[in-house]
Write a protein that binds this DNA or RNA. Structure first.
Lengths: 196, 196
DNA sequence: GCTTGCACATACCAACTAGTATGTATATCT
DNA sequence: AGATATACATACTAGTTGGTATGTGCAAGC
């Protein structure tokens, strides 16, 4: 077991615990007991609880969310199809358990934005990334005649992000995977409106 | 100062503290210090912290959210106009501070649904109420030829709820009132699609 | 005027929780 | 081989936090 392994094991479990309990509900003691390690190991890698949360956002949440959206930059194909495929994939791969726990990004946004500006800044980077990449993809679509010329690309991109988070949110209270599917389908219909 | 006054003062402040810090971040000590009362008063009215949270949902959040949606049942006028007026009002009355703190319902949903089934049940009642009242209003609109006959009323109602929560969510991270306005406007446009 | 019960106030505690101080085994470099 | 740094383990603490046990002023009812 080398050093990077331990650090990543810690971060992975922290992410899971935060996903379930929220950052304020995260208990370092619970995680280290779970991993079979000790406080010494934990505080060897992270100076504080806040640092753990920020590392989880930067090293786990951000990469996993922005992977697709950054790929839009050089992707071939109709931007609306690319976006719809991604939403469809999100809908298809979602398990009841994931829906019940909610979107990790959304959870942290709701909980931490007003409490810790460092958290908000890092979360904003992720949300901005999603929206801006989508906006640019739609704008390229306009330039290529694939997307309606009068489409407000920034507004559509922003609404798509809101629709995704809202779908997660509603499905989470209702504890209903089918609610998530229905709302994602409505979002697909909405996107289709902007095809040229 | 009579008894009901004290109870309501406590609930009001608890709501504010929860709105800002979340339920797990709620500190009873902080609230009673703020109100200038003592533990004795607090635990005279509420048996536990959980009971406070549930009372806040049942007595503050639920009535304020469902007031409009229940009124739909007997309201005159085009259902789409009624809904759009409500969304417009939500957009107009939102202050930067409220946007920064987020939607109280959404906040609690994200934080508490997976942690406490009692909370989730009570929050689900609110969300269900919003969606079902909207659904019925749209269905009446279909019956009266005001709403497109092929509209999936339940899906539209659900998506409207998701759109609202999503708009709050995105605006909260971005700390942007104009983002909220833009997304609410997109939601208005979406609703317009179903006018007969 | 005496009891009863409501509406609090005071003092206190047990459990938890992030964080620290210190020790130690092992690998690496010189 | 000795020094140094890394990667942890152990033990402990200071500050919180929800909750309780107990006391008290007071108004209403008898």
């Amino acid at each position: 077991m080398n050093a990077t392994d331990t650090r990543e094991r810690i971060l992975g479990r922290m992410f899971q615990d935060i996903h379930k309990n929220g950052f304020q509900g995260l208990r370092a003691d619970r995680v280290i007991a779970d991993l079979g390690i000790t406080k010494g190991a934990l505080y060897h890698y992270f100076p504080s609880k806040d640092a753990i949360g920020l590392a989880v956002i930067a090293e786990i949440i951000e990469p996993s969310y922005l992977a697709f959206f950054r790929s839009l930059e050089h992707a071939k194909g109709h931007p609306i199809d690319l976006l719809k495929d991604h939403l469809q994939e999100l809908a298809d791969k979602a398990t009841p358990d994931e829906i019940y726990l909610g979107c990790p990004l959304n959870n942290l946004v709701q909980e931490m934005s007003p409490l810790n500006e460092d958290f908000r800044q890092r979360l904003k980077v992720v949300m901005d990334g999603m929206i801006h990449c989508t906006t640019r993809a739609l704008e390229r679509g306009v330039a290529q005649g694939q997307v309606k010329a009068d489409a407000d690309c920034a507004a559509v991109a922003s609404f798509m992000a809101a629709g995704i988070e809202g779908a997660y949110s509603v499905a989470k209270v209702l504890k209903s995977l089918s609610s998530f599917h229905r709302n994602m389908q409505q979002l697909l219909n909405y996107l289709e409106l902007f095809r040229a």
